[in-house]
Simulated assay, not measured.
Amino acid sequence: MMPRVTPALRATLLVLLVGLPAVPLLAATPTSADESVAEGIEHLQQRWAEIHYTLPKDEQATALEALAAKADRRVAAHPEAAGLQIWAGIVRSTQAGASGGLGALSLVKDARRDLEHALALDPLALDGSAYTSLGALYYQVPGWPLGFGDDDKAERYLKRALAIDPDGLDSLYFWGDYLHEQGRDTEARQALEKALQAPPRPGRERADAGRREEVRALLETLGT
């Protein structure tokens, strides 16, 4: 009786016949852990956009605090997932901006820790978003002695983000905002106009719409 030709056996026969590698012929099946990480990232993305772009300002800090706690639980369950670390950092840095006061500095330090951990795990995760977010922190946070802000570091991180995602809405927006902060408005306008041409991100319609409004608002401040 002929043996049943399984996918693995078929791949092996092809290797013997034509020298093709067997591994690429076998489709990778997502594990439950992979699915849990993807689900966690999607939840954090969606809820962050909802809070940041639709909630009243005076409600955002409390909502972001609750979301940061959820992000921490996701990270604890999947400490190897760079994407979850990135979103923990993004949520915490946004919480710092919404909260203000002395507690904000502690939050941005924690956000930096999350983002640096993400870089150590996978610098290319989420199209280099850790570089974008770290760059934003470094030019938005005050410098010594109040904080760790550093424009030179900000530029290095933002340029790395652009090298990974040269047409991304977020990478271009924060690069344009940084350039504006540096008084380089001609370059800022170029980056921001390019940001408006960024391709849409499936499933992130609310975030895209909100970010594009921020791009347009910044362009208006640049004048003609």
Rank of each mutant, 00 (worst) to 15 (best):
222 L>Y: 13
52 H>K: 02
31 T>L: 04
50 E>R: 03
185 D>S: 14
46 Q>Y: 00
30 P>L: 12
138 Y>P: 07
27 A>L: 12
217 A>E: 15
216 R>G: 02
171 S>F: 06
211 R>A: 14
100 G>A: 09
95 Q>M: 04
216 R>I: 01
210 G>T: 13
31 T>V: 05
179 L>V: 11
195 A>N: 01
68 A>I: 00
71 A>K: 00
17 L>K: 15
199 P>E: 13
17 L>Q: 12
42 E>R: 15
111 A>C: 12
197 Q>T: 15
155 E>C: 01
57 K>D: 10
148 F>R: 07
195 A>K: 01
10 R>F: 14
221 T>M: 04
33 A>M: 03
147 G>V: 08
186 T>G: 11
23 V>A: 14
171 S>R: 04
121 L>V: 06
62 T>M: 02
202 P>C: 03
51 I>H: 03
121 L>E: 04
36 S>T: 08
120 A>F: 00
80 E>G: 04
99 S>M: 12
222 L>H: 12
199 P>N: 11
148 F>P: 04
100 G>N: 13
223 G>M: 07
210 G>Q: 11
127 D>A: 09
45 Q>P: 01
72 D>Y: 00
165 D>Y: 00
187 E>G: 13
84 L>T: 03
66 A>T: 09
54 T>S: 11
30 P>A: 07
100 G>T: 12
187 E>F: 13
166 P>A: 02
23 V>T: 14
102 L>M: 10
49 A>K: 00
51 I>V: 12
44 L>D: 06
10 R>V: 08
187 E>N: 13
91 V>R: 02
214 E>A: 09
84 L>I: 09
111 A>L: 10
68 A>F: 00
163 A>G: 14
63 A>F: 02
178 Y>A: 03
98 A>V: 06
135 G>V: 06
99 S>V: 03
88 A>M: 05
201 R>P: 06
176 G>M: 01
44 L>W: 05
89 G>D: 13
